[in-house]
Amino acid sequence: MDDAPEATAPHRPESALVEALRAGDDDAYVQLVRQYGGPMLAVARRLLRNEADAQDALQDAFLSAFKSIRGFQGQSQLSTWLHRIAVNAALMKQRARTRRPEQPIEELLPAFDGSGHRRNSGASWPEDPTRTAEAGELKKLVADSIDRLPETYRTVLLLRDVEGLDGAEAAASLGVNENTVKIRLHRARQALRELLDPHMQGTRACSSPAKS
C-alpha cells in the first residue's frame, strides 16, 4: 500500500487504470488522484471560489468516483467522467452553503424604452479589445465581472461557457430543465456584457424603426 503520494506509482494507460481500480489496487487510487485531481480541483475552485470548500468537494468527488468506478463503461474518457463528477460535487457543496440573497439579474440586463430601443446603446466595442487593452488587466476585469454576477447565473455561465457542459448536462447537474438553463445562460451573458460595456470604447447609435 502506498501511503506517500510523492512516491512513484505505476503509470498505467487509462483502460489498465480502470481495471486496476475495479480490482481494488491501491496504487491505482493514488494514480487516479495524482493524475486527474488537479483539473478537478481547478473546476471546484472556479465554481466555489473558496479553497476549503473546493478541497472538500474534490474529496467528495473522488469518494464518489471510487465508489462508482465499476459503473464506468468507457463511453466517455475517464477525464470527462471525472470532470462531471467534480462539477456535481462542487454544485452539491455550493447548495449546502448558506445562501446569501442575490442581486436581481434584472438590474444587470440592458434597458429598453417604450418603443423597444435599447437605452444607452451608444457604445460599440473595439473589434479586438485584447489588442487595445493590457491583456492581464482585461482578463482580470472580465474575471471580476463574472464574479459580480448573481451566483445562480454565474454558475450557469461557467458550466456552459467554461466547463463545456451542454444544455442537457447543465440542466441535469443543476436539477432544472433545459429551458431554464437556456434563459439563465442568455441573461448571464447579457449581464456580463453590460458589466464590461463601460470599459469598452467607441460609439454608434441604433437607428432601427420603432415598434409599430
Partner: peptide
Amino acid sequence: PGCVDYLDSYEMTLRLGREAV
C-alpha cells in the same frame, strides 16, 4: 447598427469570458 454592435459585443463577451477563466 446598434444591434449589430450588440451582437458583436455579445460574441466578444463569450470569448473574453472563456479566456478569462
